[in-house]
Simulated scan of single mutants.
Amino acid sequence: MAILDEIGASIRQLAQGAGTSVVGVGQRWGAGSGVVLGEGKVLTNAHNVRGDRVTVTFADGRAADGDVAGHDIDGDLAVISVDTGAIPALPWADGAVAEIGMPVFALANPGGRGLRVTFGFVSGVERTFRGPRGQRITGSLEHTAPLLPGSSGGPVLTAAGQLLGINTNRLGDGFYLAIPADETLRGRADALARGESAQSPRLGVAIAPNHVARRLRRAVGLAETDGLLIRDVEEDSPAARAGLAQGDLIVATAGRPIRTSDDLFDALQAATPAGTVELNVIRGTGERTIQVTFA
């Protein structure tokens, strides 16, 4: 009973203190949560915002329209510029390292429908999941504090009310993932707050995975080769301008084999948004090298 009383006291303390810095983001489908990052700035998940403006609802019920200062779709982060009044920013858990078994508290204000505070434990570290466009997000914190729909973008806190992570993904069966609140996240959040949106290079293609590509080539009598099959090419995309076509098989980039979508994502990340990437492509029975320019 003493342990339960201690947990209950911590929940009440966090609700009255840190809870004032937890906001609702959006009001209808896709609504989520967020945290006050600093004066006039709210940090949330990129998948919680639609367009350039969004409604932010504070713990006292006040609602205000904010502008998206910057977003990182692949990293699933966004910063909203909005009048936060006198609400303080949550303190970062500087130096705190999440370890399996560590007690944590998850806070949320799903779409502005009221504060929720739940308790759980760190159940895993260095986890990987897929962002909104399928790119890997690594180094994530897994925990067991229950979350309602609309809780993504809310904070994971230590018992002292320090920011340990930003909830972003539900695994199901009572497990949740959060982006760790480390120096990397702080730097990314500061850049987004300055309006420096992250722009990852995009080819503009729909692809089929390696096993599908091998099966399709075998079905039409072509040699089975590891690679990613282009199923479709967006009009006026970098891929279209470079001459990539439906049915092309991407097998390498700059001499490095491409066997999975992660291999391709890594190659694109190595290119600057205005740079180029070299792709080795098999078209029919012949192989060619294609330079894709991102502009």
Rank of each mutant, 00 (worst) to 15 (best):
D60Y: 06
R62Q: 14
R62G: 03
A64G: 02
D65T: 15
D67T: 14
V68R: 06
V68C: 05
A69N: 03
A69E: 07
A69W: 04
G70C: 11
H71Q: 15
D72T: 04
D72N: 13
I73C: 00
G75K: 13
D76P: 03
D76T: 11
L77T: 12
V79T: 10
V79H: 05
V79S: 05
I80L: 13
S81V: 01
V82R: 06
V82D: 07
V82S: 08
D83Q: 14
G85A: 10
G85N: 11
A89P: 10
W92N: 06
W92F: 15
A93T: 10
D94Q: 14
D94V: 14
V97C: 00
E99T: 15
E99F: 00
G101P: 01
M102K: 07
M102C: 02
M102D: 13
P103T: 12
F105N: 04
L107E: 08
L107A: 11
G111Q: 10
R113Q: 15
G114V: 10
L115P: 00
V117G: 03
T118P: 01
G120K: 08
F121M: 14
V122K: 02
G124W: 02
G124R: 12
R127F: 01
R127D: 05
T128V: 15
R130V: 02
R130L: 14
G131C: 09
R133T: 15
R133M: 11
R136H: 07
I137H: 01
G139H: 04
E142I: 00
T144A: 09
T144E: 11
L147Y: 01
P149L: 09
S152T: 13
G153H: 07
G154L: 04
G161A: 11
Q162M: 03
L164W: 02
L164I: 09
G165N: 07
G165A: 15
G165L: 06
I166F: 03
N169V: 12
R170H: 13
F175L: 14
Y176W: 09
Y176M: 01
Y176D: 12
L177M: 12
L177Q: 08
L177G: 01
A178N: 04
A178K: 02
